[in-house]
């Protein structure tokens, strides 16, 4: 029997978090939600009584995400520790999302599990690309650091140790095994999370696949023409990003 942990990263204040949890309550029982909090300690103390983790990691709070090589290492390690507790051993999968990556369908969990099975994958990610040897700006920025490539060559179980993957970091779906292996691996290099996370999973031997048709409504920047949740649903979106402010009610079919 599968049980999915919805790991939601947020830095918002209590009223917004309450609205977010109310939204998520249409897609997940509250006991399957874990908040990772990247705001201030004072705001963290005011949050409603749900399972939550305070993430003090300064690398989560960089000013420029890619230039500052923002890391989710602190979030991932804290979540892995939480999952390791005997009470949480029943979680078989992890859906890791940022607060503004909103679910749009009630049966999201079932759809994610089905897609993972169909793809025979360990990880599903949005906008997954292979970027080594390309003109991709994040890759070129990282490859300037000699430690970057030598790290992958040292840890990789793959034949081709130079493969570098890139994903949109706002929402990804994991088997428990792949998540724990990725989250607990020593973070020996400084790399932007959108490159580090999928590349690490790949080089640890896990099969990372793209969400494909589910990329339409979940992009780094607002999608022209997809200006509301209703439009995103009409386009077949299971999730939507970015949607920083929740205005209406869920009322999905």
């Amino acid at each position: 029997m599968s049980r999915v942990l919805n790991l939601i990263l947020t830095h918002q204040r209590r009223p917004e978090v309450e609205r977010l949890l109310r939204w998520w309550s249409h897609c997940s029982p509250p006991e399957n939600i874990l908040l990772a909090y990247g705001g201030t300690r004072e705001e963290f103390e005011k949050l409603p009584g749900v399972p939550r983790l305070f993430i003090p990691d300064p690398r989560l709070r960089v000013k420029e995400l890619a230039r500052g090589k923002q890391s989710y290492g602190g979030v991932l390690r804290a979540a892995a520790d939480w999952l390791a507790a005997p009470a949480n051993a029943g979680f078989t999968h992890v859906y890791f999302v940022e607060f503004d990556h909103l679910p749009l369908v009630r049966d999201l969990t079932a759809r994610l599990l089905q897609r993972l099975a169909d793809e025979r994958a360990d990880v599903l990610a949005h906008h997954l690309y292979r970027v080594d040897g390309t003109s991709f700006e994040f890759y070129l920025y990282h490859i300037a650091d000699p430690a970057f490539q030598s790290f992958w060559r040292r840890i990789s179980v793959r034949q081709d140790k130079d493969v570098v993957l890139q994903m949109l970091g706002t929402g990804s779906f994991w088997t428990r095994e792949a998540f724990l292996a990725m989250a607990t691996h020593p973070e020996e290099i400084s790399a932007y999370l959108e490159i580090y996370i999928p590349t690490l999973a790949h080089h640890l031997g896990y099969r990372v696949r793209d969400f494909a048709d589910q990329n339409t409504c979940s992009r780094a920047n607002p999608v022209p023409g997809i200006t509301s949740i209703e439009i995103a649903r009409a386009r077949g979106g299971w999730t939507m990003h970015p949607m920083k402010t929740i205005t209406g009610e869920f009322d999905a079919p």
């Binding site: 994958a121 997954l128 690309y129 292979r130 390309t134 793959r158 790949h202 031997g205 990372v208």
Partner: peptide, 12 residues
């Protein structure tokens, strides 16, 4: 362009 990533599961 590179083809879409489609690598097998190769556990350690």
């Amino acid at each position: 362009r590179h083809p879409a990533p489609d690598y097998p599961h190769e556990p350690r």
